[in-house]
């Protein structure tokens, strides 16, 4: 645990003496029940492997069409970035910005920064620019919306299949996989990374 031996709850300011936790043990705040810490060492190697997998799936999810539509012999498809670009060109550029940031920029940054920090953590070292990287990760965390995209794709498929024929493909399945992987890597408690070797 951290050097001075105190743990402070970020939700209610309760103060506790730090205690070593056994693997799979969970420390909860006595007054507001927030999770204060988890036992067990962070397995940087495994987390890095998942992050690299997320990076590969991210490329597939963005390179292939999310949905393809066909109607009377005409085909139309859209990748995520094409959807963003279409919004940015139109009169509702604000929508393009919101969608582009939450579905492309933030997940990409999360994957890249986590890979950077974890690659060094595997060698029990702090990455160069560790503190800014961790700060950015914390700042962008609430704005990562891949799981909402998955639900959005499902809603769009139901909506469109009423009048047109909808074709799903690699891009659609890549979003399912990406949602799982991002949940595994980015929603993980990375507090243990702060305890890596000094400044």
């Amino acid at each position: 645990m951290s050097a001075p031996g105190w743990v402070i709850c970020q939700y209610c300011d309760a103060l506790y003496r730090a205690r070593a936790l056994a693997p799979a043990q969970l420390a909860r705040c006595a007054s507001c029940r927030a999770v204060l810490g988890r036992g067990g060492r962070l397995d940087a190697g495994r987390l890095l492997a998942l992050t690299v997998a997320a990076g590969i799936v991210f490329v597939i999810a963005n390179a292939s069409p999310v949905i393809t539509l066909s109607a009377h012999g005409q085909f139309n498809h859209a990748t995520l970035l094409q959807a963003v670009a279409a919004m940015l060109r139109g009169s509702d550029a604000a929508i393009g910005v919101m969608v582009g940031v939450t579905l492309f920029v933030v997940p990409l940054l999360q994957i890249a920064l986590l890979a950077w920090v974890l690659a060094f953590a595997r060698l029990r070292r702090r990455a160069p620019a560790f503190v800014p990287a961790m700060r950015v990760l914390q700042l962008i965390h609430p704005w990562s919306m891949t799981e909402v995209l998955l639900l959005g794709v499902l809603v769009a498929i139901v909506k469109l299949s009423a009048s047109l024929s909808v074709i799903t493909g690699a891009g659609t399945y890549a979003i399912v996989a990406l949602t799982l992987l991002i949940t595994l890597i980015a929603k993980r408690d990375t507090a243990a990374l702060w305890e890596l070797g000094g400044r």
Binding site: A71, Q82, A83, A86, M98, M145, L151, V155, K159, L164
Partner: peptide, 19 residues
């Protein structure tokens, strides 16, 4: 953040339905 659902659906549908 789940409320962003409708924004994402509109963006997807509008970029797809261009026949």
């Amino acid at each position: 953040y789940w409320s962003m659902l409708d924004v994402i659906v509109v963006a997807l549908v509008c970029s797809l339905v261009q026949f």
